[in-house]
Design a protein around this nucleic acid. Structure first.
Lengths: 341, 341
DNA sequence: CCGCCGATCGGAAACGTTTACGGCAATCGG
DNA sequence: CCGATTGCCGTAAACGTTTCCGATCGGCGG
């Protein structure tokens, strides 16, 4: 069932059918209705590849995510929600979605760029990838519109979307301060990653604003995974002036810190309060439940497609670097920082 | 840069270029090499929509997942790993991947089928969706090749891929039995879901094989989420002949049961051993770490694409219902069932 | 020397759309 | 009543490939 057949049965030309189905003005309401009805009766579905071929646009955008971490069998538990958010935001904007795969170890740089050309993709959304991915470097350097969530790339038509990491960290520290804590330590993520650096900056800013002293041993660097949080917790709990609260830049590390406290015979939140970042699924499952700075996944998703549409529609390559989109976070207070429980 | 331009620069016809790049035999090695070199120099990438149009196949398969659960903001934490597995398995088989979106509340049944026609998709992989999804019902009833992981659909060209739920449950019970437990209870998933029913069947089979009595109050139905496991645990711990071990058909429920034990002043695993199912991320993060029946996500992924390829290649609609593919599970013994810790 | 065959290539017709262009009525302003 | 405008529609040319059908050419057996 193609457009020719449908045209034959409707008694009109293929041009008219095309116009009717695409809501063009130059067709009478009567024939439009007739064609519409017949199309749905016959189960006609337009052939997208053919449309793409002649229109030179596919209404499709590409999606690529990490690849780095899963080599270690480690998934970013934050990713799934982001994925869903992006998916629904894109389909709300009537885009189709194609998953791109980062190539194996071959020197297939430019794989993503090739995929974009092959499929006529109009843009790419990138989710939390390591900053040294060469495929992505090539992509960002090209003129392909890119929107990256929690990525470190810049380029001629690349825009970054990110949570307000600094403000989130600041709110966490503020919260701990209001609970009466004055000795607040932090465990950071790998500081070469922008989100990790920004969260540390927020922590430092809050401390200075609140007049809290931050001895150097109060800041330890982790890798976002559980074990590093546990090690950091152990270290922090053995310094002379033991902190009474810890802000961890990631939930897994926060849970690790709680484990360290338990091992040291300390009770959370009585002896040590802990606040994490991200609100991964496990945060609500552990006991005590983890207080955390929740990222607005849906907000990140819609901001990414909005930004991407902006890039796609703007024909001119913006000379001014596109402003990053910052999405506010939300502090979730749960058992790990709520003395009353 | 299209094939015509490339042909012009190579001094041959478009037909020859096409043959050279597609590894057809009727072209000499010399010209093939020259064309190849020129193509990569000029950054030529074939236009997939055009190829799809004329070849009538897209080398693309569709992917659809739940949609039901995320309405409640609840994600299946097991999904992300499955997604990655399917993605890599598909790209290893040189397929492209398109994400399908389940429509909103409109009566858009047939949306998936339409998408398949529109994009010339060669098959669809379905991940853990509710059994009452009408879009999927339509899809499964069609002749579109479908491979479903943990789904309840059957159809003319639909094959089901699933973990060996019964054997996994049996292994869990066997493990608890070997630890000395004789009063082993279970909390199941919603029993209208095949995986939940199969896990219960495995539990029952193991109990009967081991000569364990199963009083009716030892079997309680949950919904795979945390709260239901906590409630079930509370109930199980208050029956007259209190069980010493619980097999939960899902990790979140298992964690809930552990919480219930803690609330009752019982220590896990000393007073109560708990084994879960799935090995979600949180299983390794909670304390005590959760013993669980791990599903082989990678195995499920490759089995799904293998099965799908089988369906695609077989031109004849198999009159015999396709045999489901069963993937073995692996018992992970961690703190929640290891008395030594 | 002649017909045949295999290897290698080119010409051109598809594939299913969209859209520029032109045509034909009916309508309208004067 | 006439020219111009407007509304509606059909014809046909693209879009970038693949592939069928020949064509050419050198070699080979008879």
């Amino acid at each position: 069932m193609n457009i020719r057949e449908l045209a034959r049965r409707s008694g009109v030309s293929t041009a008219t059918v095309s116009r009717a189905l695409n809501d063009r003005a130059e067709v009478s309401e009567a024939t439009r209705a007739k064609i519409r009805r017949l199309a749905s009766e016959l189960g006609y579905a337009p052939n997208e590849p053919a449309r793409t071929l002649v229109r030179r646009r596919s209404d499709t955008i590409g999606l690529v995510w990490d690849s780095g971490q899963e080599a270690l069998g480690q998934h970013n538990p934050f990713l799934l929600g982001l994925l869903s958010a992006v998916r629904t935001a894109l389909s709300d904007a009537d885009y189709h979605l194609m998953l791109l795969t980062t190539p194996g170890e071959q020197d297939q740089d430019g794989a993503h760029l090739q995929a974009v050309q092959r499929h006529n993709l109009e843009g790419v959304i990138v989710l939390t990838t390591p900053p040294d991915d060469r495929c992505l470097r090539v992509l960002a350097d090209s003129t392909v519109p890119c929107a990256g969530i929690d990525t470190a790339f810049t380029g001629p038509r690349t825009v970054r979307v990110s949570s307000d990491n600094a403000a989130g960290a600041e709110a966490a520290v503020q919260h701990l301060y209001e609970l009466g804590h004055r000795r607040i330590a932090t465990v950071t993520g790998p500081l070469h990653l922008p989100p990790a650096a920004e969260r540390l900056a927020g922590y430092l800013r809050a401390c200075s604003r609140l007049g809290l002293s931050v001895p150097p041993e109060y800041v330890t660097e982790g890798d976002f995974f559980l074990a590093s949080g546990e090690a950091a917790g152990k270290r922090l709990l053995s310094v002379p002036d033991r902190p009474t609260a810890i802000f961890a830049a990631g939930d897994q590390m926060a849970i690790g810190a709680i484990h360290a406290a338990a091992d040291a015979g300390l009770s959370v939140p009585r002896d040590l309060a802990v606040v994490g970042f991200d609100d991964i699924d496990a945060a609500a499952l552990v006991r005590p439940a983890l207080s955390t700075v929740a990222q607005d996944q849906r907000g990140l998703g819609v901001a990414a497609v909005e930004a991407l549409r902006g890039l796609i529609d703007s024909t001119t390559v913006d000379t001014v670097e596109a402003q990053p989109r910052i999405i506010p976070t939300r502090l979730l207070i749960r058992g790990s920082s709520r003395p009353g429980v």
